[in-house]
């Protein structure tokens, strides 16, 4: 049996929430790196420049994760409403098959449940498309994070006495980017599985 869409959407929201927490960690790393670069002076000018990019990237990821999180939560709510409307429509159809006494009196409710099923279904499709686009955007951020991590390692190598500390920061950026990538990847898999079942 396919996982209900409201479960999928809620799971995607949870993955994006985790990605957002990682991005907040990345923002903190950027602040530490900047403080270190200031102390290290001229030997770490290159690294200092990179810290601005890290900060900007972390802000972008946080903003986007929050947005996707909101989209997923809305999607989950729409999916629950669709499930309820579908359940009511199914029950009405079952009753129609039982007998015809006073069935006319149910026509308005039946029509409304069918209409809301259609409207919610369309909203859900739109939401899923948007989610897919947003997750693709997320992949771009991860590619940027990888570039920044590589540049950080290169700059750390020429930082003299501060080399070890900057390498730790560079490694931290790489690991955080990997974690965010993993959360986004799981979110995309969840969405992919959902679309395979549709």
């Amino acid at each position: 049996m396919a996982t209900p869409i409201f479960v999928t959407a809620a799971s995607i929201a949870a993955e994006l929430h985790q990605a957002m927490l990682e991005a907040k960690g990345l923002a903190l790393t950027a602040k530490n790196a900047r403080a270190l670069a200031v102390r290290a002076g001229s030997k770490t000018v290159g690294f200092k420049a990179i810290t601005h990019f890290i900060d900007e990237l972390a802000s972008d990821i946080i903003r986007q994760s929050q947005y996707i999180n909101g989209v997923s939560e809305h999607l989950s709510q729409h999916a629950v409403a669709l499930w309820r409307a579908t359940m009511a429509a199914d029950k009405f159809e079952w009753i129609s098959g039982q007998h015809s006494t006073n069935l006319d009196s149910l026509q308005v409710a039946m029509k409304k449940s069918y209409e809301s099923r259609e409207v919610l279904s369309a909203q859900l499709s739109r939401g899923l498309r948007e989610l897919e686009q947003q997750l693709e955007e997320g992949d771009k951020h991860i590619r940027t994070a990888n570039l920044i991590a590589t540049s950080s390692k290169v700059e750390a190598a020429s930082a003299g006495d501060f080399r070890n500390q900057l390498e730790v920061i560079a490694q931290n950026i790489t690991e955080t980017a990997d974690k965010i990538r993993a959360h986004l990847s799981r979110a995309r898999n969840l969405l992919g599985q959902r679309q395979k079942h549709n």
Partner: peptide, 17 residues
């Protein structure tokens, strides 16, 4: 119980009542 209940009730009264 909803579906069998509504089905049974409609045999006595229309929904709007």
């Amino acid at each position: 119980l909803f579906a069998p209940m509504l089905s049974a009730v409609l045999k006595f009264v229309p929904a709007e009542k």
